[in-house]
């Protein structure tokens, strides 16, 4: 274990050091301008460094500023307040999960149709692949505004964007997974006089589980991206995307970085949660632990 963790820790430490150094370097011009305005000459280096790590709107905030902002905005404030990051994270999370569930359901349904019907396979598959070369995130503002025009706001437009992004890995993975049973296994079920439904429930579906979870890990990560981008077009709704946008309008870099870190943490938690679910399901289905 330590053989695997140590290199990661060292690399993380290196990134941290690099970040602090970069923060000095990138904030230096503004800091020296501040000193020049205040008429301060030959400031000691130590003072200069500390000041450049403590600016109000730094070009690159130092890590401790970002974590301080996360602490202030996510934990110290009541989560019901609109200023709380936890509140915005919750909005994004609910959109992500809703879209992810829709996308996974759509993906599984399409995969089942594709595996069982030759015409569906031939007509849908090329378009599904082509659908992903479309930069769908560009459509996000239109979806949000279009639905807003007919009075549908809030969770659904965001969730639809997430759905569009997350259904693709699920379709591709599930088509592969549902086709993994070999002819010999299908033949065996035929000798048992199994109905098509039994073939599906007892052979194809269990065989597709590893593929489903691998796809779901990809899907949930991009469905978070979809939710964040969907929020960019709906300022009133709140969410991490709105925090990014308002931060960018007001030059609040610390706020942007804090929202970014929360989004990253959310992504990590979601991917890990899918991993845990995978382990539970595998244990339940009697798969041998790998």
């Amino acid at each position: 274990m330590s053989g695997r963790v140590l290199p990661i820790l060292i690399v993380l430490l290196a990134i941290m050091l690099f970040w602090y150094a970069a923060a000095i370097w990138m904030n230096a011009p503004w800091q020296s301008m501040l000193y020049a305005r205040a008429g301060l000459l030959d400031v000691p280096v130590q003072q200069f460094v500390l000041d450049s790590w403590a600016q109000d709107k730094p070009v690159l905030p130092a890590p401790h500023q970002v974590f301080g902002e996360i602490w202030n905005a996510a934990i110290a404030i009541a989560p019901t307040s609109r200023r709380s990051l936890a509140y915005h994270a919750w909005i994004t999370l609910s959109g992500t999960l809703f879209g992810f569930v829709l996308g996974t359901a759509l993906g599984i349904a399409l995969a089942v149709a594709i595996v069982h019907n030759d015409a569906a396979n031939r007509s849908l598959m090329p378009w599904i692949i082509a659908s992903q070369t479309v930069p769908i995130l560009a459509v996000a503002p239109m979806v949000v505004v279009g639905f807003g025009a007919v009075g549908v706001t809030g969770l659904l437009p965001k969730a639809l964007i997430s759905m569009y992004l997350s259904f693709f890995p699920v379709v591709v993975g599930m088509v592969k997974g549902l086709r993994t049973p070999e002819t010999i296994q299908l033949d065996l079920l035929q000798t048992y006089n199994a109905t098509p439904w039994q073939v599906f429930a007892k052979l194809r579906w269990p065989a597709a589980m590893p593929f489903l979870f691998a796809s779901m890990k990809v899907g949930i990560a991009i469905s978070l991206i979809g939710a964040v981008v969907g929020e960019l077009s709906n300022n009133a709704g709140g969410g991490l995307g709105v925090r990014l946008l308002t931060g960018s309008y007001n030059g609040q870099t610390v706020q942007i970085w804090a929202a970014l870190f929360i989004a990253a943490a959310l992504a990590a938690v979601l991917v890990i949660a899918v991993g845990v679910l995978e382990r539970l399901v595998n244990a339940r289905m009697g798969a041998r632990p790998i």
Binding site: G3, R4, P7, I8, L9, I10, V11, L12, I15, L137, K217, V218, A221, L224, I225, V228, V229, L240, L244, I256, A259, L260, A263, A264, A267, A268, V271
Partner: peptide
């Protein structure tokens, strides 16, 4: 050994936010 897990992790992050 140090960079790969981090790279894998960062690939899953919403980098678009930067």
């Amino acid at each position: 050994a140090g960079l790969l897990p981090i790279g894998n992790f960062v690939s899953a992050l919403p980098i678009i936010g930067i």
